[in-house]
Design a protein around this nucleic acid. Sequence first.
DNA 1: TCATCAGGTTACTTTTTGAAACTAGCAAGC
DNA 2: GCTTGCTAGTTTCAAAAAGTAACCTGATGA
Lengths: 122, 122
Amino acid sequence: MEYDVYSAECPARTVLDHVGDKWALLVLHRLSQGATRFNALRRDIHGLSQKVLSQVLKRLERDGLITRRVFPTVPVTVEYALTGLGECLTANVGPLLRWAEANMDQIRSAQVEYDARMAEAA
Amino acid sequence: MEYDVYSAECPARTVLDHVGDKWALLVLHRLSQGATRFNALRRDIHGLSQKVLSQVLKRLERDGLITRRVFPTVPVTVEYALTGLGECLTANVGPLLRWAEANMDQIRSAQVEYDARMAEAA
DNA sequence: TCATCAGGTTACTTTTTGAAACTAGCAAGC
DNA sequence: GCTTGCTAGTTTCAAAAAGTAACCTGATGA
């Protein structure tokens, strides 16, 4: 079947709702480095709250992008990992994050320039 | 300079705040098909409100990813286009959207399965 | 006995969103 | 000369989402 992300009715938009999300992108990218536990994700991704992490993980699991494995240790540990589908997606997310890291300097100078222009106009 | 998106202090996170956004991704992708006017974007990207579009465009312009050209026609027309930097970014966004379109079927069946499992558990 | 760990959930507050109405400047129609 | 329509926005206000911080469970070690 053919999908078109520009259409609001397109189910691919639901994916975009999940994937076009800062935290989801970071979580997926982190998981691409290997299976990770809940609190490890929380520690590694600075600024991500427990509530949001738990929501994001549920969404990603529902989408079949990650798996949730519970180990009956004490205290219980839960490990999240990418599925095949998730890995395939993450292959497309990595370049985006690397691009962000690589081009920050240019963006920052563009922002400074823009702000200067705006201040001048005002 | 080296950046790390996992750190909350990392300036690349500000980019991610802009790029890890459903509407921004759609706008960038649409602009990769050529310069486009305000209302054309609004019409093409179904569900995008004027307010949000105007905010997204301002952010993207500030980041140096798009340019805004005003033509003194009557009524005035405004055309948005990708900069070199924006094109370079969009090259990384395209695959993500194509992935979303291509893998929707798998995601939808994963969702159905997940919901069935949850309903059963409850 | 009290604090600690993991992996969450809940209650409450603050931001963001989104829908719809409103603005400005000008031209065409009546 | 009054109304309507066009573009490209801004404003307003209710509703949804996100963030903050406290709480929960159940075993464990000090």
